[in-house]
Amino acid sequence: MYLKIIGSLFLMLSATAIGFLKADELKQRVRCLQELKRMMVFLQGELRFHRASLPEAFENVSERVEEPFRQFLKHLAERLETREADRFDVVWSEMSEQLLQKEGFVKEDRQLLEMLQSSLGYLDLKMQTETLNLAVLQVEDAIRLAKEQQTVKGKVYQTMGVTFGALLTLLII
């Protein structure tokens, strides 16, 4: 009997934790997108105010943003400085793939990064700032959607976790 009660409690707690973790993932995604927006705004400033080259801008901005963007920009700057590949888009694409594996990203975010891949470094300063402007607008849209999802789905996940845990407990007992 004791074993049943301990097992049921364990199941209940696990199911609730899973629900809360899933809800936290949504929160994490919002944070991630907000940091992506911050990164883009900083890059815009570096390009417009300092007229920094891309490796220089990436390095400077890496010191002002949180992970995972800090490492992303730092490694990107290093790889561009050492000119490992002949083209910028090749390096950006490889590094973006690594970034997208991290927590907080979804498949649709690939589009946001791909947009910069083909436009950064291309033509004049106006082109750079307008590209980043457009990217910021798209990230803002993504943030709005993610927040909506967080509000709706977050509560659902939490409730489902608790309910599912309780249901399992009832079934076992």
Partner: peptide, 16 residues
């Protein structure tokens, strides 16, 4: 083209 791009740090706008 590759040399010029590399010399500009892939940022032609910064070296206009």
């Amino acid at each position: 083209k590759d040399i010029v791009e590399a010399a500009c740090g892939y940022s032609g706008y910064a070296f206009e």
